[in-house]
Design a protein around this nucleic acid. Structure first.
Lengths: 219, 219
DNA sequence: CCAAAAGTGTTAGTGATACACCCATGT
DNA sequence: ACATGGGTGTATCACTAACACTTTTGG
Protein backbone atom coordinates (compact mmCIF):
# COMPACT_ATOMS: atom_id res chain seq x y z
CA UNK A 1 0.00 0.00 0.00
CA UNK A 2 1.25 3.47 -0.78
CA UNK A 3 1.54 5.54 2.32
CA UNK A 4 2.56 9.15 2.83
CA UNK A 5 5.82 10.19 4.43
CA UNK A 6 5.66 11.62 7.91
CA UNK A 7 7.71 14.49 9.26
CA UNK A 8 7.67 16.56 12.40
CA UNK A 9 8.22 20.31 12.41
CA UNK A 10 8.86 22.41 15.45
CA UNK A 11 7.92 25.98 15.86
CA UNK A 12 9.77 27.37 18.78
CA UNK A 13 9.04 30.75 20.25
CA UNK A 14 10.98 32.94 22.58
CA UNK A 15 10.77 36.50 23.78
CA UNK A 16 14.04 38.33 23.20
CA UNK A 17 15.00 41.96 22.83
CA UNK A 18 11.39 43.03 23.39
CA UNK A 19 10.22 40.92 20.49
CA UNK A 20 8.57 37.59 19.91
CA UNK A 21 10.86 35.41 17.84
CA UNK A 22 10.86 32.05 16.13
CA UNK A 23 13.81 29.88 15.30
CA UNK A 24 14.40 29.19 11.61
CA UNK A 25 16.96 27.31 9.58
CA UNK A 26 18.16 28.13 6.12
CA UNK A 27 17.69 25.18 3.81
CA UNK A 28 20.73 23.99 1.97
CA UNK A 29 19.01 21.62 -0.39
CA UNK A 30 16.07 21.64 -2.74
CA UNK A 31 13.16 22.01 -2.66
CA UNK A 32 13.10 25.57 -1.32
CA UNK A 33 16.90 25.79 -1.27
CA UNK A 34 18.02 29.03 0.41
CA UNK A 35 14.59 29.59 1.91
CA UNK A 36 14.04 29.51 5.63
CA UNK A 37 12.19 26.71 7.37
CA UNK A 38 11.25 25.53 10.82
CA UNK A 39 13.43 22.80 12.28
CA UNK A 40 12.11 19.34 11.56
CA UNK A 41 12.52 16.20 9.53
CA UNK A 42 11.41 12.64 8.90
CA UNK A 43 10.46 10.53 11.83
CA UNK A 44 12.10 7.20 12.50
CA UNK A 45 10.04 4.08 12.29
CA UNK A 46 10.48 3.20 15.95
CA UNK A 47 10.39 6.65 17.47
CA UNK A 48 7.44 8.29 19.23
CA UNK A 49 6.35 11.55 17.64
CA UNK A 50 7.26 13.86 20.46
CA UNK A 51 10.66 12.27 20.75
CA UNK A 52 11.23 12.83 17.06
CA UNK A 53 10.38 16.47 17.53
CA UNK A 54 12.86 16.81 20.38
CA UNK A 55 15.54 15.00 18.44
CA UNK A 56 15.17 17.11 15.32
CA UNK A 57 15.16 20.28 17.32
CA UNK A 58 18.30 19.28 19.15
CA UNK A 59 20.13 18.02 16.07
CA UNK A 60 19.43 21.09 14.04
CA UNK A 61 19.64 23.83 16.61
CA UNK A 62 21.20 22.41 19.80
CA UNK A 63 18.15 23.59 21.64
CA UNK A 64 16.85 21.29 24.32
CA UNK A 65 14.75 21.28 27.50
CA UNK A 66 11.82 23.11 26.02
CA UNK A 67 8.14 23.14 26.72
CA UNK A 68 6.70 21.09 23.87
CA UNK A 69 3.18 20.27 22.80
CA UNK A 70 1.59 19.05 19.63
CA UNK A 71 0.15 21.81 17.48
CA UNK A 72 -1.60 20.42 14.43
CA UNK A 73 -1.10 17.92 11.66
CA UNK A 74 -0.88 19.41 8.22
CA UNK A 75 -1.56 16.97 5.46
CA UNK A 76 -2.61 18.83 2.36
CA UNK A 77 -1.54 17.33 -0.93
CA UNK A 78 1.10 19.39 -2.65
CA UNK A 79 2.70 20.70 0.55
CA UNK A 80 5.96 19.19 -0.65
CA UNK A 81 6.57 19.10 -4.40
CA UNK A 82 8.49 15.82 -4.16
CA UNK A 83 6.03 13.54 -2.47
CA UNK A 84 3.02 13.32 -0.23
CA UNK A 85 4.27 14.43 3.15
CA UNK A 86 2.23 14.80 6.27
CA UNK A 87 3.77 16.86 9.00
CA UNK A 88 2.93 16.74 12.66
CA UNK A 89 3.81 20.17 13.94
CA UNK A 90 4.94 20.88 17.47
CA UNK A 91 4.78 24.07 19.41
CA UNK A 92 7.69 24.88 21.71
CA UNK A 93 8.60 27.63 24.14
CA UNK A 94 11.94 28.45 25.60
CA UNK A 95 13.16 31.22 27.82
CA UNK A 96 15.42 33.90 26.57
CA UNK A 97 18.31 33.01 28.89
CA UNK A 98 18.81 29.55 27.54
CA UNK A 99 18.43 30.97 24.10
CA UNK A 100 21.46 33.14 24.47
CA UNK A 101 23.61 30.10 25.03
CA UNK A 102 22.18 27.98 22.34
CA UNK A 103 20.92 30.04 19.46
CA UNK A 104 24.29 30.74 17.95
CA UNK A 105 25.30 27.15 18.56
CA UNK A 106 26.32 26.35 15.03
CA UNK A 107 26.36 28.03 11.66
CA UNK A 108 24.78 31.37 11.03
CA UNK A 109 22.05 29.64 9.07
CA UNK A 110 20.12 29.08 12.28
CA UNK A 111 18.53 32.32 13.36
CA UNK A 112 15.87 33.82 15.55
CA UNK A 113 13.48 35.90 13.51
CA UNK A 114 10.95 38.34 14.85
CA UNK A 115 7.52 37.02 13.88
CA UNK A 116 6.73 40.45 12.51
CA UNK A 117 9.69 40.26 10.13
CA UNK A 118 9.76 36.77 8.75
CA UNK A 119 11.86 36.01 5.69
CA UNK A 120 10.58 33.96 2.77
CA UNK A 121 9.60 30.60 4.12
CA UNK A 122 9.70 27.10 2.69
CA UNK A 123 6.67 24.81 2.26
CA UNK A 124 3.55 25.97 4.06
CA UNK A 125 5.56 27.12 7.02
CA UNK A 126 4.14 30.60 7.06
CA UNK A 127 0.67 29.20 7.51
CA UNK A 128 1.91 26.96 10.29
CA UNK A 129 3.54 29.86 12.10
CA UNK A 130 0.37 31.90 11.87
CA UNK A 131 -1.59 29.04 13.32
CA UNK A 132 0.98 28.65 16.09
CA UNK A 133 0.76 32.31 16.90
CA UNK A 134 -2.97 32.06 17.47
CA UNK A 135 -2.40 29.11 19.73
CA UNK A 136 0.30 30.98 21.62
CA UNK A 137 -2.03 33.91 22.28
CA UNK A 138 -4.72 31.61 23.41
CA UNK A 139 -2.35 29.72 25.69
CA UNK A 140 -1.20 32.90 27.35
CA UNK A 141 -4.74 33.94 28.01
CA UNK A 142 -5.94 30.69 29.46
CA UNK A 143 -2.95 28.83 30.80
CA UNK A 144 0.27 29.38 32.66
CA UNK A 145 2.68 28.78 29.78
CA UNK A 146 3.97 32.34 29.86
CA UNK A 147 6.35 31.26 32.59
CA UNK A 148 8.11 29.01 30.10
CA UNK A 149 9.22 32.13 28.29
CA UNK A 150 10.97 33.45 31.37
CA UNK A 151 13.89 32.19 33.44
CA UNK A 152 13.24 30.60 36.83
CA UNK A 153 13.36 33.97 38.51
CA UNK A 154 11.85 37.11 37.10
CA UNK A 155 10.26 40.40 38.01
CA UNK A 156 6.59 41.16 37.53
CA UNK A 157 7.52 43.74 34.94
CA UNK A 158 9.28 41.08 32.89
CA UNK A 159 6.22 38.90 33.12
CA UNK A 160 4.02 41.76 32.05
CA UNK A 161 6.28 42.45 29.09
CA UNK A 162 5.87 38.89 27.89
CA UNK A 163 2.14 39.40 27.82
CA UNK A 164 2.36 42.80 26.20
CA UNK A 165 4.70 41.61 23.47
CA UNK A 166 2.62 38.60 22.60
CA UNK A 167 -0.74 40.32 22.81
CA UNK A 168 0.79 43.36 21.11
CA UNK A 169 -1.08 45.57 23.55
CA UNK A 170 -0.26 47.55 26.65
CA UNK A 171 -1.62 46.36 29.97
CA UNK A 172 -2.33 48.28 33.14
CA UNK A 173 0.42 47.64 35.66
CA UNK A 174 -1.73 47.69 38.78
CA UNK A 175 -4.42 45.47 37.38
CA UNK A 176 -1.90 43.05 35.94
CA UNK A 177 -0.17 42.62 39.27
CA UNK A 178 -3.42 42.29 41.15
CA UNK A 179 -4.50 39.52 38.80
CA UNK A 180 -1.26 37.55 38.87
CA UNK A 181 -0.93 37.80 42.63
CA UNK A 182 -4.57 36.99 43.35
CA UNK A 183 -4.30 33.85 41.23
CA UNK A 184 -1.35 32.77 43.34
CA UNK A 185 0.71 32.02 40.27
CA UNK A 186 3.95 33.33 41.68
CA UNK A 187 5.77 33.47 44.94
CA UNK A 188 8.16 36.10 46.16
CA UNK A 189 11.78 35.22 46.66
CA UNK A 190 14.02 37.07 49.07
CA UNK A 191 16.00 38.51 46.21
CA UNK A 192 15.77 41.82 44.48
CA UNK A 193 17.19 43.14 41.25
CA UNK A 194 20.83 44.17 41.38
CA UNK A 195 22.71 46.97 39.72
CA UNK A 196 19.84 48.89 38.29
CA UNK A 197 19.84 52.63 38.51
CA UNK A 198 16.38 52.84 39.95
CA UNK A 199 14.41 51.20 42.68
CA UNK A 200 15.21 47.46 42.43
CA UNK A 201 12.31 45.13 41.68
CA UNK A 202 11.36 42.12 43.74
CA UNK A 203 12.22 38.79 42.17
CA UNK A 204 9.49 36.17 41.90
CA UNK A 205 9.40 32.54 40.91
CA UNK A 206 6.60 30.46 39.47
CA UNK A 207 4.46 28.71 42.04
CA UNK A 208 5.23 25.10 41.26
CA UNK A 209 2.09 23.82 42.91
CA UNK A 210 0.35 24.94 39.73
CA UNK A 211 1.37 22.97 36.68
CA UNK A 212 2.86 24.73 33.69
CA UNK A 213 0.37 24.70 30.89
CA UNK A 214 -2.47 24.13 33.33
CA UNK A 215 -5.68 25.89 32.41
CA UNK A 216 -6.10 29.06 34.48
CA UNK A 217 -8.05 31.97 33.07
CA UNK A 218 -5.63 34.82 33.24
CA UNK A 219 -7.41 37.39 31.12
CA UNK B 1 13.31 4.97 3.96
CA UNK B 2 10.94 3.21 6.30
CA UNK B 3 7.94 5.30 7.04
CA UNK B 4 4.98 4.67 9.32
CA UNK B 5 1.50 3.98 8.09
CA UNK B 6 -1.07 6.74 8.48
CA UNK B 7 -4.70 6.32 9.39
CA UNK B 8 -7.52 8.63 10.34
CA UNK B 9 -9.98 7.86 13.10
CA UNK B 10 -13.20 9.71 13.72
CA UNK B 11 -14.85 10.14 17.04
CA UNK B 12 -18.35 11.28 16.47
CA UNK B 13 -20.59 12.47 19.26
CA UNK B 14 -24.28 12.99 19.45
CA UNK B 15 -26.80 13.62 22.18
CA UNK B 16 -29.59 11.07 22.10
CA UNK B 17 -32.06 9.81 24.64
CA UNK B 18 -30.67 12.18 27.27
CA UNK B 19 -27.22 10.74 26.87
CA UNK B 20 -23.98 11.61 25.16
CA UNK B 21 -23.11 8.90 22.69
CA UNK B 22 -20.28 7.93 20.38
CA UNK B 23 -20.49 5.84 17.26
CA UNK B 24 -18.50 2.61 17.29
CA UNK B 25 -17.98 -0.29 14.91
CA UNK B 26 -17.37 -3.88 15.80
CA UNK B 27 -14.17 -5.11 14.22
CA UNK B 28 -14.44 -8.22 12.10
CA UNK B 29 -10.77 -8.85 11.65
CA UNK B 30 -7.70 -9.09 13.78
CA UNK B 31 -6.13 -7.39 15.58
CA UNK B 32 -8.78 -6.74 18.18
CA UNK B 33 -11.35 -8.87 16.36
CA UNK B 34 -14.78 -8.54 18.00
CA UNK B 35 -13.72 -5.44 19.88
CA UNK B 36 -15.30 -2.07 19.20
CA UNK B 37 -13.45 0.73 17.47
CA UNK B 38 -14.02 4.20 16.14
CA UNK B 39 -14.64 4.48 12.42
CA UNK B 40 -11.44 5.06 10.47
CA UNK B 41 -8.84 3.58 8.22
CA UNK B 42 -5.81 4.14 6.05
CA UNK B 43 -5.55 7.32 4.10
CA UNK B 44 -5.02 7.34 0.37
CA UNK B 45 -1.84 8.74 -1.05
CA UNK B 46 -3.55 11.58 -2.89
CA UNK B 47 -6.27 12.42 -0.41
CA UNK B 48 -6.26 15.34 2.05
CA UNK B 49 -6.59 14.27 5.65
CA UNK B 50 -9.96 15.75 6.36
CA UNK B 51 -11.38 14.24 3.20
CA UNK B 52 -10.09 10.85 4.27
CA UNK B 53 -11.88 11.27 7.57
CA UNK B 54 -15.16 12.12 5.85
CA UNK B 55 -14.79 9.23 3.44
CA UNK B 56 -14.09 6.66 6.12
CA UNK B 57 -16.95 7.89 8.21
CA UNK B 58 -19.33 7.70 5.30
CA UNK B 59 -18.13 4.31 4.07
CA UNK B 60 -18.37 2.69 7.43
CA UNK B 61 -21.41 4.31 8.93
CA UNK B 62 -23.29 6.19 6.16
CA UNK B 63 -23.02 9.28 8.30
CA UNK B 64 -22.29 12.50 6.45
CA UNK B 65 -22.65 16.26 6.78
CA UNK B 66 -21.06 16.51 10.14
CA UNK B 67 -19.12 19.17 11.95
CA UNK B 68 -15.54 17.95 11.74
CA UNK B 69 -12.28 19.17 13.17
CA UNK B 70 -8.91 17.66 13.79
CA UNK B 71 -8.45 16.40 17.31
CA UNK B 72 -4.93 15.10 17.86
CA UNK B 73 -2.37 12.86 16.23
CA UNK B 74 -1.53 9.75 18.17
CA UNK B 75 1.73 8.18 17.20
CA UNK B 76 3.00 6.05 20.05
CA UNK B 77 4.91 2.96 19.08
CA UNK B 78 3.00 -0.20 19.77
CA UNK B 79 -0.45 1.31 19.22
CA UNK B 80 -1.02 -1.33 16.55
CA UNK B 81 0.63 -4.72 17.08
CA UNK B 82 1.15 -5.20 13.35
CA UNK B 83 3.11 -2.13 12.37
CA UNK B 84 3.93 1.43 13.23
CA UNK B 85 0.74 3.32 12.66
CA UNK B 86 0.17 6.98 13.26
CA UNK B 87 -3.42 8.05 13.46
CA UNK B 88 -4.77 11.53 12.91
CA UNK B 89 -7.94 11.64 14.93
CA UNK B 90 -10.92 13.78 14.05
CA UNK B 91 -13.67 15.06 16.26
CA UNK B 92 -17.18 15.17 14.83
CA UNK B 93 -20.60 16.27 15.99
CA UNK B 94 -23.95 15.44 14.54
CA UNK B 95 -27.46 16.21 15.61
CA UNK B 96 -29.73 13.58 16.92
CA UNK B 97 -32.27 13.92 14.11
CA UNK B 98 -29.91 12.95 11.37
CA UNK B 99 -28.68 10.20 13.59
CA UNK B 100 -32.03 8.50 13.70
CA UNK B 101 -31.96 8.07 9.96
CA UNK B 102 -28.41 6.97 9.62
CA UNK B 103 -27.26 5.15 12.67
CA UNK B 104 -28.95 1.89 11.88
CA UNK B 105 -27.93 2.21 8.27
CA UNK B 106 -26.30 -1.18 7.94
CA UNK B 107 -25.46 -4.11 10.15
CA UNK B 108 -25.97 -4.11 13.87
CA UNK B 109 -22.23 -3.91 14.28
CA UNK B 110 -22.43 -0.14 14.03
CA UNK B 111 -23.83 1.24 17.24
CA UNK B 112 -24.14 4.38 19.32
CA UNK B 113 -22.72 3.82 22.78
CA UNK B 114 -23.21 6.07 25.77
CA UNK B 115 -19.80 7.38 26.73
CA UNK B 116 -20.50 6.32 30.27
CA UNK B 117 -21.01 2.73 29.15
CA UNK B 118 -18.37 1.98 26.61
CA UNK B 119 -17.65 -1.60 25.64
CA UNK B 120 -14.12 -2.99 25.34
CA UNK B 121 -12.33 -0.92 22.80
CA UNK B 122 -9.64 -1.72 20.24
CA UNK B 123 -6.20 -0.08 20.08
CA UNK B 124 -5.82 3.04 22.21
CA UNK B 125 -9.33 4.16 21.38
CA UNK B 126 -10.41 4.57 24.95
CA UNK B 127 -7.67 7.08 25.51
CA UNK B 128 -8.66 8.92 22.35
CA UNK B 129 -12.29 9.11 23.42
CA UNK B 130 -11.31 10.46 26.80
CA UNK B 131 -9.24 13.10 25.14
CA UNK B 132 -12.09 13.96 22.79
CA UNK B 133 -14.46 14.29 25.69
CA UNK B 134 -12.26 16.90 27.31
CA UNK B 135 -12.15 18.78 24.05
CA UNK B 136 -15.92 18.55 23.69
CA UNK B 137 -16.45 20.04 27.14
CA UNK B 138 -14.04 22.79 26.39
CA UNK B 139 -15.69 23.51 23.06
CA UNK B 140 -19.08 23.82 24.64
CA UNK B 141 -17.80 26.25 27.19
CA UNK B 142 -15.97 28.52 24.82
CA UNK B 143 -17.52 28.11 21.39
CA UNK B 144 -20.85 27.71 19.71
CA UNK B 145 -20.49 24.07 18.65
CA UNK B 146 -23.37 22.97 20.87
CA UNK B 147 -25.71 23.95 18.05
CA UNK B 148 -24.22 21.19 15.91
CA UNK B 149 -25.72 18.72 18.33
CA UNK B 150 -29.22 20.05 17.73
CA UNK B 151 -31.45 20.20 14.68
CA UNK B 152 -31.92 23.51 12.86
CA UNK B 153 -34.78 24.42 15.14
CA UNK B 154 -34.86 23.76 18.83
CA UNK B 155 -36.20 24.99 22.13
CA UNK B 156 -34.06 26.61 24.79
CA UNK B 157 -34.76 23.66 27.04
CA UNK B 158 -33.27 21.32 24.46
CA UNK B 159 -30.22 23.52 24.24
CA UNK B 160 -29.88 23.56 27.97
CA UNK B 161 -30.16 19.78 28.08
CA UNK B 162 -27.25 19.47 25.68
CA UNK B 163 -25.13 21.48 28.08
CA UNK B 164 -26.35 19.63 31.12
CA UNK B 165 -25.70 16.24 29.59
CA UNK B 166 -22.21 17.08 28.44
CA UNK B 167 -21.17 18.94 31.56
CA UNK B 168 -22.96 16.34 33.66
CA UNK B 169 -24.32 19.09 35.84
CA UNK B 170 -27.62 20.91 36.27
CA UNK B 171 -27.85 24.52 35.18
CA UNK B 172 -30.16 27.28 36.33
CA UNK B 173 -32.88 27.82 33.76
CA UNK B 174 -33.19 31.58 34.17
CA UNK B 175 -29.47 32.25 34.10
CA UNK B 176 -28.95 29.94 31.17
CA UNK B 177 -31.56 31.70 29.08
CA UNK B 178 -30.32 35.11 30.04
CA UNK B 179 -26.82 34.17 28.94
CA UNK B 180 -27.78 32.61 25.61
CA UNK B 181 -30.13 35.43 24.70
CA UNK B 182 -27.77 38.20 25.77
CA UNK B 183 -25.02 36.72 23.60
CA UNK B 184 -27.39 36.87 20.67
CA UNK B 185 -26.65 33.30 19.74
CA UNK B 186 -30.17 32.41 18.76
CA UNK B 187 -33.13 34.00 17.11
CA UNK B 188 -36.77 33.32 17.69
CA UNK B 189 -38.80 31.75 14.95
CA UNK B 190 -42.55 32.20 14.69
CA UNK B 191 -43.12 28.59 15.56
CA UNK B 192 -43.91 26.91 18.80
CA UNK B 193 -43.83 23.31 19.94
CA UNK B 194 -46.79 21.18 18.85
CA UNK B 195 -48.66 18.41 20.54
CA UNK B 196 -47.20 18.65 23.95
CA UNK B 197 -49.45 18.36 26.95
CA UNK B 198 -48.13 21.49 28.56
CA UNK B 199 -47.38 25.05 27.61
CA UNK B 200 -45.64 24.87 24.22
CA UNK B 201 -42.11 26.22 24.01
CA UNK B 202 -40.92 28.80 21.53
CA UNK B 203 -38.74 27.44 18.75
CA UNK B 204 -35.40 29.10 18.13
CA UNK B 205 -32.75 28.78 15.46
CA UNK B 206 -29.05 29.48 15.56
CA UNK B 207 -28.07 33.01 14.62
CA UNK B 208 -26.10 32.38 11.48
CA UNK B 209 -24.27 35.67 11.67
CA UNK B 210 -22.13 33.94 14.31
CA UNK B 211 -20.03 31.13 12.93
CA UNK B 212 -20.38 27.65 14.31
CA UNK B 213 -17.32 26.80 16.29
CA UNK B 214 -16.50 30.46 16.70
CA UNK B 215 -14.98 31.34 20.04
CA UNK B 216 -17.59 32.88 22.32
CA UNK B 217 -17.27 32.51 26.05
CA UNK B 218 -20.49 30.91 27.08
CA UNK B 219 -19.71 29.93 30.67
C1' DC C 1 -58.96 21.29 37.70
C1' DC C 2 -54.71 18.89 37.52
C1' DA C 3 -50.14 17.83 35.67
C1' DA C 4 -46.30 19.27 33.17
C1' DA C 5 -43.02 22.07 31.38
C1' DA C 6 -42.43 27.13 29.80
C1' DG C 7 -41.36 31.45 30.94
C1' DT C 8 -39.85 35.41 33.66
C1' DG C 9 -36.87 39.65 37.61
C1' DT C 10 -34.44 41.04 41.43
C1' DT C 11 -30.77 41.18 44.62
C1' DA C 12 -26.23 40.53 46.51
C1' DG C 13 -21.73 39.64 45.68
C1' DT C 14 -17.67 39.22 42.90
C1' DG C 15 -14.48 40.51 39.56
C1' DA C 16 -12.95 43.94 35.83
C1' DT C 17 -11.51 48.42 34.57
C1' DA C 18 -9.81 52.99 34.84
C1' DC C 19 -6.81 56.00 36.85
C1' DA C 20 -2.09 59.02 39.47
C1' DC C 21 1.18 59.43 42.75
C1' DC C 22 5.10 58.20 45.93
C1' DC C 23 9.35 55.17 46.50
C1' DA C 24 14.11 53.39 46.19
C1' DT C 25 18.19 53.36 43.86
C1' DG C 26 22.34 54.95 40.89
C1' DT C 27 24.59 58.71 38.85
C1' DA D 1 18.75 66.56 43.02
C1' DC D 2 17.37 64.24 39.06
C1' DA D 3 16.19 60.34 36.16
C1' DT D 4 14.38 55.79 36.03
C1' DG D 5 11.45 52.24 36.60
C1' DG D 6 9.08 49.90 41.00
C1' DG D 7 5.26 49.70 43.64
C1' DT D 8 0.56 50.68 45.49
C1' DG D 9 -5.53 51.71 46.41
C1' DT D 10 -10.05 53.11 45.33
C1' DA D 11 -14.39 53.82 42.96
C1' DT D 12 -17.42 52.47 39.33
C1' DC D 13 -19.42 49.27 36.46
C1' DA D 14 -20.59 44.84 34.55
C1' DC D 15 -21.31 40.15 35.13
C1' DT D 16 -22.47 36.01 37.91
C1' DA D 17 -25.20 33.31 40.97
C1' DA D 18 -28.93 32.32 43.78
C1' DC D 19 -33.61 31.95 44.09
C1' DA D 20 -39.82 30.96 43.34
C1' DC D 21 -43.84 31.84 41.22
C1' DT D 22 -47.14 32.42 37.21
C1' DT D 23 -48.52 30.90 32.49
C1' DT D 24 -50.14 27.93 28.91
C1' DT D 25 -51.48 23.85 27.17
C1' DG D 26 -53.59 18.88 27.00
C1' DG D 27 -55.95 15.45 29.29
Amino acid sequence: MKTPLVTVDIIIFTVMEKDLKVLLIKREIDPFKEKWAMPGGFIKIDEPLEEAAKRELYEETSVKDVYLEQLYTFGGIGRDPRARVITVSYFALINSNEVKIKASSDASDVRWYAVKQLPELAFDHRKIIEYALKRLRWKLEYTTVAFKLLPEKFTLTQLQEVYEIIFDKELDKRNFRKKILSLGLVKETKETQKEVSHRPAKIYSFNRSIGIGEIVEIF
